[in-house]
Amino acid sequence: MLDDRARMEAAKKEKVEQILAEFQLQEEDLKKVMRRMQKEMDRGLRLETHEEASVKMLPTYVRSTPEGSEVGDFLSLDLGGTNFRVMLVKVGEGEEGQWSVKTKHQMYSIPEDAMTGTAEMLFDYISECISDFLDKHQMKHKKLPLGFTFSFPVRHEDIDKGILLNWTKGFKASGAEGNNVVGLLRDAIKRRGDFEMDVVAMVNDTVATMISCYYEDHQCEVGMIVGTGCNACYMEEMQNVELVEGDEGRMCVNTEWGAFGDSGELDEFLLEYDRLVDESSANPGQQLYEKLIGGKYMGELVRLVLLRLVDENLLFHGEASEQLRTRGAFETRFVSQVESDTGDRKQIYNILSTLGLRPSTTDCDIVRRACESVSTRAAHMCSAGLAGVINRMRESRSEDVMRITVGVDGSVYKLHPSFKERFHASVRRLTPSCEITFIESEEGSGRGAALVSAVACKKACMLGQ
């Protein structure tokens, strides 16, 4: 009897593995994704193909990295998701002549009506938060230079001027797309009239992360975010950046690689679950690469896999709870928690219980395998993109072996128990001629924006502006 049951459990697990095998990517698959990513990057950089390229390769006008001589107080704003952060950054000489960066910050959550109302409502709310922060720190009387981390696709015309191309991540505030974001912020500050600010720089969160990590390690020339969304930036040779005049030196390019796949480059790798996630998203047909990796989508992918296993009578005796059938019910943090389970399955059992399920031991094991399959594919897909960037940098610099540091931020990278190990191992397999160091950014977005502002202020002083 026991043997029969054991055989049935083994057969069930084997069927589960057959279904989950769809998520496995072979090294040849990853090399294919990497080569296609490089081709799209090239198209994004070139003037004649930029418009139709899915990977936009947006110039950021960040050319210099901090040298350690900029000092002063800077205000930093960070808008990239449902939370908005205001930070005071003091850049100065530390002990023994070292450079020191001290920060104080406060988080504000953005109400739904500000995210989806008008641009005026959104930026009025942001300036209200700045006003509140300055009151708390008794700094209303000071006109501070301000660095703005704005983590949406922007076409820069200068370091302090950028046109919002399109909202992502659930934002829909009308009247912002096609307009200068810094102008919208300046107008809102003017409307309030109770404080003055000098907006000197606007950067993407990947750029802010790279600059913040450069402060720790001067070989950091790539910034990457794996959180709600997924994106990367890197220092490109100016001669390859056709959208900006000049051939000397390097400029940081914001790849906006989340949109890779929007022209069909990933079609052969998309599964039924991916198509369902895409169809029910706020932007169907867009940001397809990001939807395979980002935390906004990972939990939902797992939920759809679990429903398939229920329908195949391989999980929960073929019956799903009402909660499990509800879109968004299986949160991405559950994926991390399930994979963090120590082996007694308590954590998995508790999560499934909150979803109205009474799982068996085998159910718990199957749910864990589903989570591992989805998150491992995410790590491997992400590795193909980064390997594409790094191999490109090595080739354009004609280096036999390139040493490089990548600064990384984002909740999936930082909080998932195995993502970074799987990701690092896969990147290294795909970049055999590179020695890569990964560092995690601390308060990256805010500190990085302030350091970019410090560079901009120093330049302005040198130019006598």
Rank of each mutant, 00 (worst) to 15 (best):
L2E: 09
L2P: 13
L2G: 12
R5G: 08
R7H: 15
M8W: 13
A10F: 15
A10M: 15
A11N: 12
K12S: 15
L20R: 10
L20A: 02
L25I: 15
Q26E: 15
E27K: 00
L30V: 05
V33E: 03
M34F: 02
R36E: 01
K39F: 09
K39L: 08
D42R: 04
L45K: 06
L47C: 06
T49L: 08
H50E: 08
E51R: 12
V55W: 06
L58S: 13
Y61I: 00
S64C: 08
P66C: 11
G68M: 03
S69R: 10
V71Y: 00
V71S: 02
D73E: 01
F74A: 00
L75I: 02
S76Q: 02
L77W: 05
G80W: 10
V86P: 02
V86N: 02
M87I: 05
L88W: 04
K90W: 02
K90F: 03
E93H: 11
E95F: 13
Q98A: 05
W99A: 06
S100C: 07
K104W: 07
Q106N: 12
M107K: 10
M107V: 08
I110P: 02
E112D: 12
G117E: 12
G117N: 01
A119N: 11
D124M: 03
I130Y: 08
S131N: 14
D132F: 07
D132S: 06
D132P: 02
L134P: 00
L134V: 07
K136R: 08
Q138H: 09
Q138Y: 10
K140Y: 03
H141I: 02
K142M: 09
K142W: 12
K143Y: 04
L144C: 13
F148G: 11
F150N: 15
S151V: 11
F152D: 13
P153K: 08
P153A: 07
D158F: 15
D158S: 10
D160C: 10
I163S: 12
L165G: 12
N166M: 11
N166Q: 10
T168M: 07
G170K: 07
G170A: 08
K172A: 04
S174H: 03
S174K: 04
G175A: 02
N179T: 03
N179L: 14
V181T: 15
L184N: 14
L184Y: 15
L185Q: 01
R186I: 09
R186S: 08
R186Q: 09
R192V: 03
R192S: 02
E196K: 05
M197G: 01
I211C: 01
I211K: 00
S212G: 13
S212Y: 10
S212W: 05
C213E: 01
Y214E: 01
D217L: 01
C220Y: 02
G223S: 07
G223W: 01
T228Y: 06
N231T: 06
C233E: 00
Y234D: 00
Y234R: 00
M238P: 00
V241W: 02
V241G: 00
E242V: 00
E242S: 03
E245W: 03
G246V: 03
D247N: 01
E248K: 03
E248V: 04
M251W: 02
C252R: 00
N254R: 05
T255Q: 11
G258C: 15
F260Q: 00
G261F: 08
D262V: 08
D262Q: 09
E265M: 11
E265I: 04
F269N: 11
F269W: 04
L270E: 05
L270R: 08
L271G: 01
L276K: 09
N283T: 15
P284T: 15
Q286R: 14
L288N: 15
L288K: 15
E290Q: 09
K291Q: 13
K291I: 14
I293E: 08
G295S: 13
G295Y: 10
K296L: 14
E300W: 01
L301H: 14
L301M: 12
V305G: 01
L306S: 05
L309H: 07
N313Q: 10
L315W: 03
E319H: 11
A320F: 15
L324R: 00
R327S: 13
E331I: 14
Q337C: 07
V338T: 00
E339N: 04
S340F: 03
S340V: 02
T342A: 03
D344F: 06
S353T: 04
S353Y: 02
L355N: 01
G356M: 08
L357R: 06
R358T: 03
R358C: 09
S360E: 06
C364V: 06
D365N: 03
I366Y: 05
R368T: 07
R369I: 07
A370L: 05
E372Q: 02
E372A: 03
E372W: 02
S373Q: 06
S375G: 07
S375Y: 04
A379R: 03
H380Q: 13
S383I: 02
L386F: 11
L386G: 05
I390S: 09
R394D: 06
R394T: 09
E395V: 05
E399C: 12
R403I: 11
T405Q: 00
V408S: 06
S411F: 07
S411Y: 05
V412Y: 14
Y413V: 11
K414Q: 06
K414L: 14
K414M: 12
K420H: 09
E421Y: 14
R429M: 15
R429Y: 14
P432D: 15
P432Q: 12
I436M: 11
E442A: 07
S445A: 11
G446E: 13
R447K: 08
R447E: 14
R447H: 10
G448P: 13
G448R: 10
A450E: 14
L451R: 14
L451D: 10
V452Q: 04
S453P: 11
V455M: 14
K458W: 10
C461A: 10
M462N: 08
L463W: 10
G464D: 14
